[in-house]
């Protein structure tokens, strides 16, 4: 518990400090890659609240991310909304759609839940294609205004984007921690571990799952809004099941499910590695697959599990503490 708590708080703070420290030195390309990595981390943390906490594997997360992106794009471009307000609206819209998806999807469980959300992800993708007046159809949504400048970053949109992405990640992360510690968070853990026992303890299983799904959707929507403003363009392909929907699963599984900080590392690894290995760009998809294979075979608890295992090799600590950490990593 204690060690887990330390990692939970310390590691993200370190990442934030390093990222912010790097801001003054990096060039635009590095800034862009970092911004995307931070944005994907936000998506991964939001997704971990669902997959890690409740154990339900949804493949509709990319679609909900897209709902946020299109909502913000439409409001800022066509309705002239202020970006911040549009981001809030995007989060609410994704939360609303997410809640509807959850009400349908939670009628099932296990593999059926995964397949049903896969269907929702595929149908959602089609909606982005056919709702041309709202989404721009297959051609995508163009000319989305950028993120308004923060004080002191007026002449530097790349740095501005990164700082906004980092702030959103921080807000998402701490909101997720609060969620985990709340009574609903405890209820979600109970649901993940043993639904029947949770029910016999009077836990409102439906409410807990719905809350986790809605929470997770809202922050995906906010991340979508930032993505739309950073890219100035969104197209359906950005939100397909095989792109984002599947990618978030990879982030969370590689990072370590249910830890909240692990998925940040997972997202950074998956986003940055292909960039670092640019010479091998042709093979980046293969590297991606190999990475996934490696983790599933040799480090099923993800990076977070590996980090904690390494720390355990260092001088002995009270057994109870290590066991707790190891087990909570396992989930």
């Amino acid at each position: 518990m204690r060690r887990e708590a330390i990692m939970r708080w310390l590691l993200p703070v370190i990442i934030l400090v390093i990222a912010l420290a790097a801001v003054p030195f990096a060039n635009d390309y590095i800034l862009y890659v970092l911004t995307i990595a931070v944005l994907m981390s936000t998506l991964a943390v939001s997704y971990d609240v669902l997959l890690g906490l409740t154990g339900y594997l949804s493949l509709a997360h990319g679609f909900l991310y897209g709902v946020g992106a299109y909502t913000a794009a439409y409001l800022t471009t066509n309705s002239g909304w202020n970006f911040w307000l549009a981001m809030l609206a995007a989060a609410l819209m994704s939360a609303l759609i997410g809640a509807i998806v959850a009400l349908v999807a939670f009628r099932t469980k296990g593999i059926y839940f995964a397949v049903l959300t896969l269907g929702i992800g595929l149908v959602g993708f089609q909606f982005f294609l056919v709702l041309e007046p709202l989404t721009g159809g297959v051609g995508g949504f163009v000319g989305i205004p950028g993120i308004p400048s923060l004080p002191g970053l007026a002449d530097d949109p790349s740095r501005n984007n990164l700082v906004v992405a980092i702030v959103l990640l921080a807000v998402t992360y701490f909101a997720a921690l609060v969620f985990l510690r709340s009574s609903i968070g405890a209820a979600c853990l109970a649901v993940r571990e043993d639904v029947t026992l949770a029910q016999s303890l009077g836990i409102r299983v439906g409410t807990a799952r719905l809350a986790a799904f809605t929470f997770s959707s809202a922050f995906a929507g906010a991340a979508g809004a930032v993505f739309a403003a950073i890219s100035n363009f969104v197209g359906p392909d950005d939100f397909s099941v095989m792109a984002t929907g599947f990618q978030v699963v990879v982030f969370v599984v590689i990072g370590g499910m249910g830890t909240l900080w692990g998925p940040i590392l997972g997202a950074f690894l998956v986003v940055c590695l292909p960039e670092v290995l640019r010479g091998a760009a042709t093979y980046s998809v293969a590297i991606y697959g190999i990475l996934l294979l490696f983790f599933i075979l040799f480090a099923p608890k993800g990076i977070a599990g590996a980090v904690l295992a390494l720390r355990r090799l260092l001088p002995a600590r009270p057994a109870s503490v290590t066991q707790t950490a190891r087990h909570s990593e396992a989930r």
């Binding site: 571990e193 009077g202 087990h327």
Partner: peptide, 19 residues
């Protein structure tokens, strides 16, 4: 029947929250 993957403390916290 308890929540096998969680610590005893977390188990009790769940019961506490549920009650």
């Amino acid at each position: 029947r308890v929540f096998m993957g969680l610590t005893a403390r977390e188990n009790l916290r769940i019961a506490h929250v549920a009650g």
